[in-house]
Design a protein around this nucleic acid. Sequence first.
DNA 1: GTCACTAAAGCAAAATATTTGCTTTTGCTG
DNA 2: CAGCAAAAGCAAATATTTTGCTTTAGTGAC
Lengths: 194, 194
Amino acid sequence: MDQKQADIGKGPQPRPGGRAARIQAAVFKAVDDLTQEGEPAEPTVPAIAARAGVTPSTIYRRWGSLAQLLSDVAVKRLRPDAEPDDSGDWRADLKGWLVQYAEEMASDPGRAMMRDVLSADRTDNACVCSAYTGQQLDVIRARALAKGDTPPDTGVLMDKVIAPVIYRILFSRTPPQADYVAGLVEDVLGKAGE
Amino acid sequence: MDQKQADIGKGPQPRPGGRAARIQAAVFKAVDDLTQEGEPAEPTVPAIAARAGVTPSTIYRRWGSLAQLLSDVAVKRLRPDAEPDDSGDWRADLKGWLVQYAEEMASDPGRAMMRDVLSADRTDNACVCSAYTGQQLDVIRARALAKGDTPPDTGVLMDKVIAPVIYRILFSRTPPQADYVAGLVEDVLGKAGE
DNA sequence: GTCACTAAAGCAAAATATTTGCTTTTGCTG
DNA sequence: CAGCAAAAGCAAATATTTTGCTTTAGTGAC
């Protein structure tokens, strides 16, 4: 993960290591803890503040609203922590990554994070998420190119696989199943690979 | 518009014409008015209640939260008010409808409505929106079938046109342009029509 | 190191919003 | 028309968000 990627979506703190970063970490951790403590409803700002050992006004002043804070936390959690697997067969890696991506995003926590990202005041976070996805796809694509293959363009994958998967998760009662996703991938690979 | 379609997404009122319906109408109108009065921020529940001549607790008890109310209002506004144009050339109608759909959803009000729909507590409303879109596409499709043509499946249109359009609106900085949408439609028509 | 300077946090009071118990109204049904 | 159930009104109790002011932490100049 290069410097540019590491900088995306870091949040509002200007200097790393200082008080601002400490408080942000404490607040993020508090949100993480509270959301995972089985509570189905969203945590409140006062609850988060108490858990983080911080005063509520700090949160309001720094993030502006609960929605924005939850959105920032979601983006942080959506940041990929590792590169996609590399088995040597980039088609298999691509399909595997996309199937797993769909599964994660369709899960309850995945949907909650997506909702949080989209209901923020600022629209930036959603773009950052999409950029994360693109970066992961680009990694697989670069490996294919290095082998002299012609993998599908990342934009094409976004349109033909990511978009339908996300659309179905957001707008349908039935989340995409693994074989549906696999079918989408094969469609794209079929055309590009022939 | 048939009875089944008219019933979708009507909201919580059980009997039409009664007090429940009157109050819902007043509240919906208040939300409409307030959102269009240039205010960039979302209206508050007390403001809506005051405008509707209703007590805030009514709103809280009936809708549970501002998010749910805004979502219901958005769905109501997203309900199609007319069938797609019928020029006799279903391919042109389809492309025209989709281009206009993309434009409307990419507009500021369109994006606000989509955001409202997605940030509701209940997930039903998003499904209803998607159903509306499917119904409109089905109308065009039925015309093509009546002529003995083989139009693309509505599910395919959802995956290949609607999904990328919505994904880009939600997750990218650059909303889809008309020629991009037209390209997507031609891709689908190209395959189905040959 | 110390001193000023700035940005952000703490604190507490004020302003808003939300919840809740109880009463009243409304529309339906027998 | 009386009785019933569902939903609205009202007002008090809670909870939240906002705000003005004070304090603290980090930064850069000496």
